[in-house]
């Protein structure tokens, strides 16, 4: 589904990650994990085509390199994206937000758009909130609405940035369940950036773990296997919630 080869990314002249390669298969729930500041979100921004890599290649099936929306006639996006804060358009109601890609990229008459929007909102448990504005919703509802918008065009692939960050445990579990259900029922491939352990064990089929010092991937595979059998101390610390060793106190 996604093929990444020799990817080098960074900001300005500063390299964050060097020569990273991985593949995401169809139907995977592929989790990108790592500590804060290791470049997870930056990697995501490259995968979805918002930033241009310093070197290397990103190919998304039936798409090639991610496209720039500003070229030519533009094209319907081949995948959906959920941003960490939701990034719903604040001046539009939920129905307008979810309907925006449908109105832009399909010839559906308004009534049909409305029907699809209602169904998508119901899918994420937000039926009835069609005419609410994003700032009238809680954090979890915003994220779910953003998932509905990402699913509006029925893409086979959805990227999610920290879906359960900042949510209470119940909402977080509900969101994980929703993602699993979508993965099963729609055969949706999910690429999830997160550092929430419970969420990782609940949903991930495969993962890669990034590290800031190593500037790349330090582990890949099934997170449960990595937790129990991983031999890299950084990986074990992450999965077992242990603090990094520090220099002894005093002199």
């Amino acid at each position: 589904m996604i093929h990444v080869e020799g990817l080098t990314i960074g900001w300005g002249a500063r390299v964050l990650m060097r020569d990273v390669s991985f593949d995401v298969a169809r139907g995977d729930v592929f989790v990108v994990l790592g500590g804060s500041g290791c470049g997870k979100s930056t990697l995501l921004r490259h995968l979805i085509g918002l930033e241009r890599p310093m070197a290397g290649r990103i190919a998304i099936e039936r798409l090639g390199a991610p496209r720039d929306a500003c070229v030519g006639r533009g094209a319907a996006p081949a995948f959906g994206v959920m941003f960490q804060s939701g990034a719903l358009l604040g001046s539009m109601t939920l129905a307008e937000n979810v309907g925006l890609p449908l109105r832009t990229w399909t010839d559906l008459p308004p009534a049909a758009v409305e029907a699809v929007v209602r169904a998508k909102l119901a899918l994420v448990g937000l039926d009835g909130f069609e005419n609410h504005l994003p700032n009238e919703l809680s954090g979890g509802m915003k994220k779910r609405a953003a998932i509905a918008r990402a699913l509006a065009l029925d893409p086979p692939l959805v990227f999610l940035d920290e879906p359960s960050a900042g949510l209470d445990p119940v909402s977080a579990v509900e969101l994980d369940d929703l993602l699993l259900a979508l993965n099963r029922a729609l055969g949706l491939t999910l690429v999830v950036v997160t550092h929430e352990l419970q969420s990782i064990f609940a949903i991930a089929t495969r993962c890669i773990m990034l590290d800031r010092e190593a500037q790349g991937i330090i582990a890949r595979g099934d997170p449960r296997w990595l937790r129990d059998h991983g031999d890299d101390p950084r990986v074990r610390r992450f999965f077992n919630r242990q603090a990094a060793p520090t220099a002894p106190a005093g002199a």
Binding site: L50, D68, P77, G80, S85, A87, L89, P101
Partner: peptide, 20 residues
């Protein structure tokens, strides 16, 4: 405000060019 709250990025991912 749209820029700092990632709404501009979200538009791009919906296939909409912010300039247009």
């Amino acid at each position: 405000t749209m820029r700092v709250s990632e709404e501009v990025d979200a538009l791009r991912t919906l296939g909409l060019c912010p300039y247009r």
